[in-house]
Design a binder for these strands. Structure first.
Length: 251
DNA sequence: GCTCATGTTCCCCT
DNA sequence: CAGGGGAACATGAG
């Protein structure tokens, strides 16, 4: 699930805990607490949650709660006495409710951190919501990799994941296997425009919409067809990830 | 039993 | 150094 829009949805969920005191951190699965100790945030008050790429950053007193959701993580605010999910791994118990970090496959995790957050997140490029057309062109200049590989790179632009990148390439009508360095400025422009649109349109939904008129709404069908032209979509590994594109329109 | 999965990292090549 | 391929991580769902 978690790409930029999903994590933005989790941020909205986290806001329900903003301003509340953390009474207790329940570490149900200690392997998901990847750094720091409960004591760093217990008794502190949550501030306003932020997001950078696929990272959720939640200030708590002089520390920060950093969360990454891997492929199966999510965040829920729930009443304290409501039933927990079997994959809830770490729970921030507050008065009036609790914030539950859930993660089935256990990729990603939670850090309770006082030092530079870059030690945890590694270097991240600008968030995809903040990359304008000029910046996009600058970032992609002198890149030698494919469109797929380049847009997936979190150190270049933060927040785009597998579904989003396929969606962007499809909207821009660019073959994801193409080398960035071979793209005309017109195609680069199209790519930026598609990214901007996909990001903006998926933010309110809190996910890449598997909707009519979106590649994401068609890619998982048994015989997946291009929503624009009806051509049978192609599916193959590109840059190590399952990639779906329209062989007729994407060049 | 088998394959595949919205992410990241690490190792080995070229 | 940049980039690609593949494996590993852990746990399902189909």
């Amino acid at each position: 699930m978690p790409e930029l829009p999903d994590v933005e949805g989790f941020r909205r969920e986290a806001r329900k805990a903003a301003g509340r005191r953390i009474e207790h951190v329940e570490v149900i699965d200690a392997t998901l607490l990847r750094g720091g100790k409960r004591a760093a945030v217990e008794g502190r008050r949550f501030g306003e949650p932020m997001r950078h790429g696929k990272w959720l950053i939640f200030p708590a007193g002089d520390a920060e709660v950093l969360m990454h959701f891997g492929m199966t993580g999510r965040l829920d605010w729930a009443p304290r006495r409501s039933e927990r999910h079997r994959h809830d791994r770490i729970v921030f118990v507050c008065r009036g409710g609790e914030l539950r970090y859930r993660n089935m496959r256990k990729f990603g995790g939670v850090w309770l951190w006082r030092q530079s957050r870059e030690q945890v997140t590694g270097p991240l490029g600008p968030d995809a919501t903040e990359v304008d057309r000029e910046r996009f062109a600058e970032l992609l200049a002198n890149r030698r990799g494919t469109v797929k590989h380049t847009l997936m790179d979190q150190t270049l632009i933060a927040g785009l994941g597998n579904l989003m990148v396929d969606e962007v390439a499809w909207r821009a009508r660019v073959d994801p296997r193409r080398k960035v360095s071979e793209l005309s400025s017109r195609r680069l422009e199209r790519l930026w425009h598609a990214m901007d649109e996909v990001v903006r349109d998926s933010l309110p939904t809190g996910r890449v919409p598997p909707a009519e008129g979106w590649l994401t709404g068609a890619r998982d069908a048994r015989t997946a067809r291009c929503p624009r032209c009806g051509t049978r979509l192609r599916r193959a590994a590109v840059a190590g990830r399952t990639t779906v594109w329209c062989p007729r329109e994407q060049r």
